[in-house]
């Protein structure tokens, strides 16, 4: 039996966006190892798990576990990489409809094969279950 076809990296998946932003629920997804302060920390040396972040939490309720990007900004304001408070503000202003109940964060990892084959598909499915109209992704 032949392996199923895989998407070439030269091919770009594209889902048209048909809604108005004012009617859209937005989900944040980051690789900056952000989590709720009350949640289990990421292992900064390498961690293939992801965290769910209650979108009702403010930036002050969040933490990060990282040793790979500059922290001068995020130590003063987590919105530099994870703009949860800014999305909440845009929702209050009616410029987006709101946020999904959960946002998502991955940690740092060099175990690329496991990431590709396990973590990323699991995360993508979890994001899909949250039923966002649009997803905003940020790195570190």
């Amino acid at each position: 039996m032949e392996k199923p076809l895989e998407l070439s990296r030269y091919c770009v998946p594209f889902t048209p966006f048909v809604k108005a932003l004012e009617e859209s629920l937005v989900c944040l997804v980051t690789t900056a190892a952000v989590r709720a302060k009350t949640d289990t920390p990421f292992n900064v040396e390498g961690d293939n798990s992801f965290r769910r972040i209650d979108s009702s939490l403010a930036g002050a309720d969040l933490a990060y576990d990282d040793a790979h990007y500059d922290h001068a900004c995020i130590d003063r304001d987590i919105n530099c990489v994870f703009p949860a408070d800014r999305l909440a503000s845009l929702a209050r202003e009616g410029r987006i409809a709101g946020m999904t109940a959960e946002h998502f964060s991955m940690g740092y990892s060099q175990a690329l094969r496991e990431l590709r084959e396990t973590t990323v598909p699991q995360l993508a499915r979890a994001v899909s279950v949250a039923r966002p109209d649009a997803v905003l992704l940020t790195g570190g």
Partner: peptide, 9 residues
């Protein structure tokens, strides 16, 4: 991966 599930990103 998220886009492939039919979500705009």
């Amino acid at each position: 991966a998220i886009e492939m599930l039919g979500i705009s990103t």
